[in-house]
């Protein structure tokens, strides 16, 4: 499982951080920290299956629907 975040859709709501703090965080300006790693689309490395529930929750709760899960 990988998470893919469309950084053009994301508007830094930070809701994902409450659901899956293991994966998502905001930097000290309040922006999604993946912005430092990618410009348009951030694609994670392979994630442990034990994170699935929290990643699904993050994808559901993202107001911009910017998070996709790839299997």
């Amino acid at each position: 499982m990988k998470v893919v975040v469309d950084l053009n859709k994301c508007s830094d709501h930070g809701q994902c951080v409450y659901s899956a703090p293991e994966i998502f965080s905001l930097d000290d300006r309040g922006e999604l920290s993946f912005r430092a790693l990618a410009k348009d689309v951030y694609r994670s490395g392979e994630l442990d299956e034990s994170l699935r529930d929290s990643v699904e929750e993050a994808a559901d709760i993202c107001p911009m629907q910017a998070i996709e899960i790839e299997d």
Partner: peptide
């Protein structure tokens, strides 16, 4: 605004 403080206040 106060984007960097959302977490704190929640």
């Amino acid at each position: 605004g106060m984007a960097q403080s959302h977490n704190k206040y929640r």
